[in-house]
Computed example of a mutant assay.
Amino acid sequence: MQRAVNAGELEKQTCEVCGIEAVDAHHDQYDEPLKVRWLCRRHHTRLHHYGEDMFPIRDAF
């Protein structure tokens, strides 16, 4: 993931839930490696713990 960011193939965003800058890349589908959701560690962990419906997928990536 970091390689794609460094190469300019992917632009790191802030957390889509709270806007914090320290984020993880979350993959809804691993067969699309550059299609990610940017979530802070707190929201990324909650998403995995409580399920994908906790933070519904937005239309824009």
Rank of each mutant, 00 (worst) to 15 (best):
L10W: 06
C18K: 04
H26P: 07
A60L: 10
L10E: 00
V17Y: 02
G8M: 06
G8L: 01
L39T: 04
H48N: 10
L47V: 04
C40P: 05
T45I: 15
V36P: 00
D31Q: 05
H43G: 05
G51N: 04
A4C: 09
F61R: 00
H43L: 05
G51L: 05
I20Y: 11
P33F: 03
Y30R: 09
E32D: 11
Q2W: 08
A25Y: 01
L47N: 05
H43M: 04
E21G: 15
G8V: 01
H44K: 07
V23M: 03
D28A: 10
Y50P: 03
R42H: 13
I57W: 01
K12R: 12
R46H: 15
E32N: 09
K35C: 13
P56A: 03
G19R: 02
T45G: 14
V23C: 03
R58Y: 01
V23Y: 01
A4H: 05
Q13V: 10
R3M: 11
V17D: 01
H27D: 09
E9D: 12
F55I: 09
H49G: 15
G19T: 01
E52R: 06
I57L: 12
F55V: 08
Q29E: 14
L34Y: 05
V23K: 02
H48S: 11
A4W: 04
P56V: 00
N6W: 06
Y30M: 11
T14H: 12
D59Y: 00
V5W: 00
H49E: 15
A4F: 03
V17C: 05
M1I: 12
E21C: 15
A25N: 00
L10S: 01
Q13S: 12
D53H: 08
R41L: 12
Q29P: 00
A4L: 09
H27L: 08
A60C: 08
H26Q: 09
